[in-house]
Design a protein around this nucleic acid. Structure first.
Length: 413
RNA sequence: GCCCGGGUGGGGUAGGGGUUAUCCUAUAGGACUGUGGAUCCUUCGACUCGGGUUCGAUUCCCGACCCGGGCCCCA
């Protein structure tokens, strides 16, 4: 009986894994150079952590189970909540800002599609403790730079939930949420019908439609005309100025809603083409979560990058890596292993484990793409030398083993 | 969860109610026991699963599972 992978999971073959590792390493080093520290949280958490944060609605997509001690456990569907939980548990007294990054797998029970899996990887970062636009701008800039590292193009959209919410005074949370959902979907007809249904104020309706249509460089000016000189617009303008300083291209979009309603201020999304319906590769914003997990309320900003989606669109390729194959036989295995051991301190070395003939070992060297074959046969051992064969030119020379190591390491392998 | 379109060796494919199920590629070995890439030979290996229709199903029908596209939601 053949056993297959569970639905929505993937096996990563050597080439896939190498490329993923390569991109991951690039992202890590960028996060690191921006002063963020890596953390790890558990693969599973108390289910409550996620329902408190996102509401019962998230149960539909969560992998949860009752453990042998009757605890309700969930495989993490995302990492912001675990990171903030960790912050509350261990880092509240750490010097601010607390700058963290993570790269881990997450699980959601959803219908798999292009760019959507049941096990997927998120690369994210959070700045905890700064309510200032400088922190928001830094987070956005970091996300953009990471995509650039990966060779992925992205279109950055920035909005601010606080601004649109000033129109909602007097509306309850559920109604606000429904409006934001329709705004996010860009379902103008549905939005109009819904506003009619709840008998929303005519002036508010007009302002809302005008606001979500605003875009371009004077969007903020236009918004001021609509809403007056409110504080949210001032800080939003400050953020945009900082994005300019960071040298980022962006589109102002007051219609970005983000799925989860714990976002309080700035929100941003980055889209990439070539991903079909799942075109969002990154999402983030400013939020308040710590108080939900029993901590002191604190302003945070963060983002999560859909690593699998980045992999779909990224053009960066891992560098070619060359190998050396050491060819030896039963009689010369000892000498062969010694050379291999020395060379392995510097480069990738294969030695035959198939009991193959001389010719077959060279064929193997060819197959694995080895640039060099080091031949250690009885003739060489008798002369206390080794033969170095260039697999491209076919040329071969006799060296002693010190020269061999020097030669190969000098070639940067 | 909903709506489409698909599943033939490891990968890519041809075919089609009764076949020895096609070809390419990859694997392992050999021709070629101290010199690779070419060529040739051999080997390994498949009709996703379960029902139904039928004398007979890999082929037709239904369902499940899985994959792809879209909706929803989101990364």
């Amino acid at each position: 009986m053949k056993i297959n992978r569970p639905r929505g999971t993937r096996d990563f073959l050597p080439d896939d894994t190498r490329k993923r590792r390569y991109i991951e390493t690039k992202l890590r080093s960028t996060a690191r150079n921006w002063g963020y520290n890596e953390i790890k949280t558990p693969t599973f958490e108390h289910l409550e952590l996620f329902t408190v944060k996102s509401g019962e609605g998230i149960l539909g997509v969560i992998y949860n189970f009752t453990d042998k001690g009757d605890r309700e456990i969930a495989l993490r569907p995302e990492l912001t909540a675990p990171v903030l939980r960790m912050y509350v548990n261990e880092l509240q007294r750490a010097p601010k800002p607390v700058k963290l990054y993570y790269f881990d797998n997450c699980f959601r029970y959803e219908r798999p599609q292009k760019g959507r899996f049941r096990e997927f990887w998120q690369f994210g970062a959070e700045v905890i403790g700064s309510p200032r636009p400088e922190a928001e701008a830094e987070v956005i800039a970091l996300a953009s730079h990471m995509l650039e590292d990966a060779g992925a193009d992205g279109e950055l959209h920035v909005g601010h939930l606080g601004i649109i919410r000033t129109l909602f005074t007097g509306l309850d949370t559920a109604t606000q949420g429904q409006i934001m959902r329709l705004v996010d979907k860009k379902d103008d007809k549905g939005l109009e019908d819904y506003l009619e249904e709840i008998d929303a104020d005519i002036g508010m309706r007009e302002k809302l439609f005008e606001l979500i249509g605003l875009t371009g460089s004077d969007a903020v000016q236009e918004a001021k005309r609509l809403l007056g000189d409110i504080e949210e617009l001032e800080t939003f303008q400050a953020l945009l100025d900082l994005l300019n300083i960071h040298g980022l291209d962006y589109t102002v979009n007051f219609g970005i809603a983000r799925g989860l309603d714990y976002y309080t201020g700035m929100v941003f999304e980055i889209y990439s083409s070539g991903l079909g319906a799942q075109n969002q590769v990154c999402g983030g914003g400013s939020y308040r979560l710590a108080h939900l997990f029993g901590g002191k309320d604190i302003e945070s900003t963060g983002f999560a990058l859909g690593f699998d989606r980045v992999m779909e669109v990224c053009t960066a390729q891992p560098p070619e890596e060359s190998r050396v194959v050491v060819v030896c036989f039963d009689e010369t295995r000892k000498e062969g292993m010694q050379i291999a051991k020395t060379l392995r301190e510097h480069m990738i070395v294969d030695v035959d484990v198939m009991g193959r003939s001389f010719g077959a070992q060279l064929k193997f060297a060819n197959n694995v793409g080895a640039r060099w074959a080091v031949i250690i046969g009885e003739d060489e051992v008798a002369k206390n030398k080794v033969a170095l064969k260039d697999m491209e030119s076919g040329e071969q020379e006799i060296l002693d083993s010190d020269e061999l190591v020097k030669r190969l390491t000098a070639l940067n392998y």
